[in-house]
Amino acid sequence: MLEARLAQGNVLKKVIDSLRDLVNEANFEFTPSGITLQSMDSAHVILVSLLLRADGFDNYRCDRTIPVGINMASLSKIIRAAANDDAITLRADDNGESLNLIFEAPNAGRVSDYELKLMDLDVEQVALPDMSYDVTVRMPSEELQRVCRDLSAVGESVTINATKESINFGVKGELGSGSIAIRSTAPVDKKEGVSISMRQPADVSFSLKFLTQFTKATPLSETVRLEFSNECPMLVEYPIGDMGYIRFYLAPKVDD
């Protein structure tokens, strides 16, 4: 038996919005300490890792780990019916055949109850190493979204490098080239600020298409963290308040 209630149901709506274009089917693992998800695309280019800690929910009860196999398009259709200010409760029995989603309006005048059929999924999992990256950048999530949108008009892959002063994004295409530098700011400006820490320089190249898909998570957080090293997957992390995160890993472009 599991039951998880989130008064701020729109957090869950935003999480599903961030996932639905990247993940077709996935197991949400309901565990006594929270909800996790790991999903990789079939081409093994991107990986999504989600954590929602139990103590971030208003009510959370889960006695043992239960994999909840979900078709993301189906979940997305149902969760769209929740209003932004609704509380959302997830409930499932131990048999794992269905997940109930209950949406309550704040004045308790409306209660919607949906049942989502679950899937028995056998999905590949990877062990995520505790990587130490050469460059760590924290920046406003809207700025990353803008960089992806603007540079996508010019080319398909972005090169990223950083100095202590700025993180630099560059693109080349048939029509020409473009670059955007996001300058680091004083540590005082926390939310809108840009911080760069660097152990050694890195110059990396990634597909803009996937990076742009990650920025669907922008509504979840005002800040985003980028971590990268030469010839390694990049980590793009959006914190979800105090309750967890959504992390995206993107395989680098490699020179032939």
């Binding site: 280019v45 990877v126 597909s207």
Partner: peptide, 14 residues
């Protein structure tokens, strides 16, 4: 020229 890398060359499938 470059090609798209794969995550399973970096992360171990379990």
């Amino acid at each position: 020229t470059s090609t798209q890398g794969r995550l399973d060359t970096f992360f171990k499938v379990v």
